[in-house]
Simulated assay, not measured.
Amino acid sequence: MNSDQPNTVSILLIILFGLAVAATLAVYGGATLARRGIGRSDLGVRLRGGAAFSGAMAALMYAWGALHLVRDETMTDQACKQAVPSSQTAHITGADVSYLPLHLNCHITGGGSYPAAVPDYVNPSLLGFALIAIVLGVFATLESELSARNNFKKEESS
């Protein structure tokens, strides 16, 4: 099998970076919510904390998926043979790595390819957590702006 093997050092750096981002966002989210307590915090604080936790989960999912790409040539060959239908295993021509969406592409003659190695739940979970983080971040920004306007109007009228 002709294979474009992923650079293991690059993937390990991606994993470490993902873990560092996840830890940073989780600490930020926890610290944001712990300042006054979840129950006493205003909506903007809760939205920011939720966005940080969701971003941390997205980073963890990416690191988890990247961990499945750390493979030698034999492991890549086995992953491709498991992903490709048994009638097509003799026609595997090579493999390469896709980083977005995260998977190992196993190519067969005739131009087809099959995703392998990364669990099926990783990419949808990653997308879901990232979208939730973005939406909560946007809502937190809007709520903060609205709160600042209301405070300004209160000060102006008094």
Score class of each variant (00 low, 15 high):
1 M>G: 12
4 D>G: 07
4 D>Y: 12
5 Q>C: 10
7 N>L: 01
8 T>F: 03
14 I>E: 10
14 I>G: 03
15 I>L: 11
16 L>T: 15
17 F>I: 06
19 L>E: 13
21 V>M: 01
22 A>W: 10
22 A>D: 06
25 L>M: 09
26 A>G: 12
29 G>A: 06
29 G>S: 07
30 G>H: 02
31 A>Q: 13
31 A>M: 05
33 L>E: 07
34 A>S: 14
35 R>S: 08
37 G>Q: 00
37 G>R: 06
38 I>N: 00
38 I>Q: 04
39 G>E: 11
39 G>S: 07
40 R>H: 11
40 R>Q: 03
42 D>K: 02
42 D>C: 03
43 L>C: 01
44 G>N: 07
44 G>Y: 01
44 G>E: 12
45 V>D: 08
45 V>Q: 04
46 R>G: 05
47 L>R: 10
47 L>H: 10
47 L>C: 07
48 R>Y: 15
49 G>P: 09
49 G>W: 01
49 G>S: 00
51 A>T: 08
53 F>T: 08
54 S>K: 02
55 G>S: 07
55 G>V: 04
56 A>R: 06
57 M>H: 03
57 M>V: 09
58 A>T: 05
60 L>V: 13
60 L>D: 03
61 M>V: 12
62 Y>P: 02
63 A>Y: 15
63 A>W: 15
63 A>Q: 12
63 A>F: 13
66 A>G: 06
66 A>C: 14
67 L>D: 14
68 H>S: 07
69 L>Q: 13
71 R>Y: 01
73 E>G: 06
73 E>R: 05
73 E>F: 03
75 M>N: 13
75 M>Q: 15
75 M>T: 15
76 T>G: 00
78 Q>P: 04
80 C>I: 04
81 K>T: 08
83 A>T: 13
83 A>G: 09
83 A>S: 08
84 V>L: 00
85 P>L: 00
86 S>V: 07
86 S>E: 14
88 Q>M: 00
89 T>D: 13
89 T>G: 03
90 A>R: 08
90 A>T: 13
90 A>H: 11
93 T>Y: 01
94 G>D: 05
94 G>H: 11
95 A>F: 11
